[in-house]
Amino acid sequence: MRFRFTAPLWEWSAQGGWFFVTVPEQYGDDIREVPRMPRGFGSVRVRVTIGGSTWSTSVFPDSKRGSYVLPVKKAVRTAEGIGEGDDVDVALEVLDL
C-alpha cells in the first residue's frame, strides 16, 4: 500500500518541537481498513520519503484530524530545508499489512 500526497508541516502546540504532516483523510481510511495486530497508540509502521530523505517510522491515529499523523524528525526537516507551514511532498509506504 503506497501513497503520494502533499500536505503542510505543522508543530504540535501541546508539546513544542514535534512536527507532523497529516495524512489525507482518504488515505487514512485506506490504512485503517487493513486488519492488523494492534500496536502501541494504534500506530502503523511505514517507510517515508521526503525529497532525498527516506526513513522508517510510524503514523499515529489522530481523531482531531480524522486521519493519521506522520512525525517528521529534525534531521529530515534540516536536510530538506522545510519548516512549519511548508507544503511537503510525501511518498508513504505502509509496512504493516
Rank of each mutant, 00 (worst) to 15 (best):
T49C: 08
P24S: 10
S67I: 02
V34A: 09
D96Q: 09
L92A: 06
V94F: 10
T54Y: 15
R4H: 11
W12Y: 15
A75R: 14
R45M: 09
P71D: 06
V76F: 04
D62E: 12
L92G: 01
A75V: 14
R32Q: 11
I31F: 03
V94I: 15
T78C: 02
I50T: 02
L92D: 01
P61H: 11
S67Y: 03
D89F: 03
F20T: 00
S63F: 07
A79P: 07
V88Y: 01
V59A: 03
G52W: 04
V69E: 08
L92C: 07
T22F: 02
G81N: 13
F5P: 02
A79K: 11
G83H: 10
W18P: 05
E25R: 15
F41D: 14
D30T: 14
R45A: 13
I82M: 14
W55P: 03
Q26E: 15
F19A: 01
R32S: 10
E80F: 01
D96T: 10
W10K: 00
T6G: 03
L70K: 05
S56P: 04
L92W: 00
K73D: 06
G40Q: 14
M1K: 11
M1W: 06
Q26P: 09
G42I: 04
A75G: 05
V46I: 12
E25Y: 06
P24W: 15
V23T: 03
L70C: 03
K64S: 10
E84M: 08
A75Q: 12
R2D: 12
D86M: 08
